[in-house]
Design a protein around this nucleic acid. Structure first.
Lengths: 107, 107
DNA sequence: TTCGTTCATCGTCGATATGCGATAGGGTGG
DNA sequence: CCACCCTATCGCATATCGACGATGAACGAA
């Protein structure tokens, strides 16, 4: 991709919804494989939750493997690293004196 | 606010656009005060850039102080810290062994 | 005061996102 | 094979976003 901002914007867009953030928290707190339990935990319609999962999967933030009759969703930890580095570059050095990840890669 | 996910989603939404990411990069690379130069650098209409600046300011990501005939925009580095911590919690420990910012504050 | 510069706001349009019910697909069990 | 559970997809309605031109408001300079 010629413009990295587009990819970063896609990542940010995937996080730009409370329901999707809730799903990510749920995946973070659940070690194993969860499927329809997400629907009950989120409180939205099954089709709506499925759409949010599709968006997260399209952004690469999560992975969905079919495991028998259900789908196993899990976090893809590396996907958010570029966005994390971008935010880290905007964060002042005073808050990250312990870890400066080469600021020259951002511009 | 009862639900912190809403605030995080607002922050992420502020970053969910290439033009706004470009503006943030520009502010990061420009030490002093910039105003209309942003319009030329972004390549969009002045009203469109003003709208993006309004969104960023509403999210608290930037500050805009009126300095004479122009407005001085600057980064507000602390605004993105909650989102950065959230992403850090989703990022695997292997990628941040140098700086673990107390993961228990996220849930 | 009058002009020019700079930025914010308004109205509008098309595009996109969000939510739901209904429906189809696919695998497991009986 | 058939029925059941889980998931994905399809339409559709509403809401929000993104972009622009035009207009308005504030300030400094002449």
């Amino acid at each position: 991709m010629r413009n990295p901002d587009i990819d970063l914007a896609e990542l940010a867009k995937a996080l730009a919804h409370p329901a999707r953030l809730r799903i990510l928290r749920l995946l973070l707190a659940t070690p194993g494989c969860i499927g329809g339990d997400i629907v009950d935990a989120i409180g939205l319609a099954q089709s709506t939750v499925s759409e949010h999962l599709r968006i997260l999967k399209a952004a690469g933030v999560i992975t969905g493997e079919i495991s028998g009759p259900r789908t196993c969703y899990a976090l893809n930890p590396t996907a958010l690293e570029p966005l994390g580095e971008f935010i880290g570059a905007l964060t002042p050095p005073s808050a990250r004196t312990c870890c400066v990840p080469d600021q020259k890669e951002i511009p």
